[in-house]
Design a protein around this nucleic acid. Structure first.
Length: 211
DNA sequence: ATCCCGAGGG
DNA sequence: CCCTCTGGAT
C-alpha cells in the first residue's frame, strides 16, 4: 500500500525543504507549495532570509497561516545558519532542533528526505494512527517514536512515515475515519468490534501493507 | 495549557 | 458556524 509514498512538499535543496517544512505547520502542503516558488526565488540562500524585510516576508507566506511567527522563525533561521553553520543546513538532529522554528518532527523530515538518514516523523497523523493500530498508547511524540523504532527496522522508518501520513490524510481521518474504504480494517484493533489486544497490533506490523 | 493564524470543508 | 490542517515556542 502506498508504494510511492513520498514527501509532497516541493523542494530542490535541504534549505528549501527545511523552509517548506517550517511553513507546513498546521497547513496543507498544497498551500505551502503555492507560495514556495516565489519565496525560493526571492530568498535563494540562508543569508537572504537573515537579511529579509520582515513585512515583505510575512506577505509572501501569509496564506500558510501563523505568518508572523513563521516569518520571525525564518529570519532567525537564516541568521543562525549563517552564524553557526556557514549558511548550510546541518545534517544532525541536535543541530537542527536548536534552530528557530525547528522541532523534532521538522528535523526528522529534513533528515529523512534531504540527508537520507532514517527518521520517524511523528506528526499528528502518525501519532493518531499508531495509537489506533495499537502500536502504542503514548501521546508523547518521542515515546511514540521509540515504540515504533522497536517495531520496525531503521531502513523502513522514512517510507513508513510517509505511508502513515498518506493514510492518515486520505483514509484514517482524525474525526470520521473512512473504515469502509480502509484496506487495513481487517487487521485494525480500532475497527468495529475487532480485537483490541496486542496480538492484533502485531498482525498489523507483520501482515499489514505497512510492513 | 495556550497562543500563533489563514483557508477550505462539512 | 465549527472544525481541521504533516507544529513549535512560551
Amino acid at each position: 500500500m502506498y508504494p510511492n509514498a513520498h514527501c509532497e512538499l516541493d523542494f530542490t535543496s535541504p534549505l528549501e525543504l527545511l523552509v517548506a517544512t517550517i511553513l507546513s505547520a498546521q497547513c496543507t502542503d498544497r498551500r505551502v507549495n503555492a507560495v514556495t516558488p516565489t519565496l525560493f526565488a526571492r530568498y535563494p540562500a540562508a543569508a537572504d532570509y537573515a537579511a529579509a524585510d520582515r513585512a515583505e516576508l510575512e506577505e509572501l507566506i501569509r496564506p500558510t497561516g501563523f505568518f508572523r511567527a513563521k516569518a520571525g522563525n525564518l529570519i532567525g533561521l537564516g541568521q543562525e545558519l549563517c552564524a553557526r553553520f556557514g549558511g548550510e543546513v546541518p545534517g544532525r538532529l541536535a543541530d537542527l532542533v536548536s534552530l528557530p522554528g525547528v522541532g523534532r518532527k521538522t528535523a526528522n523530515v529534513v533528515l529523512g528526505n534531504a540527508f537520507g538518514v532514517p527518521g520517524i516523523t511523528v506528526d499528528t497523523h502518525f501519532g493518531r494512527l499508531a495509537r489506533r493500530f495499537g502500536w502504542t498508547r503514548a501521546s508523547d511524540p518521542v515515546k511514540v517514536e521509540h515504540a515504533i523504532g522497536d517495531l520496525f527496522p531503521p531502513e523502513d522508518w522514512t517510507l513508513l512515515s510517509h505511508r502513515m501520513i498518506w493514510h492518515g490524510r486520505r483514509v484514517c481521518h482524525a474525526r470520521r475515519p473512512a473504515c469502509g474504504a480502509c484496506d487495513l480494517a481487517r487487521w485494525c484493533p480500532s475497527y468495529g468490534e475487532g480485537p483490541t489486544d496486542e496480538a492484533a497490533a502485531r498482525k498489523l506490523v507483520r501482515n499489514g501493507p505497512f510492513s
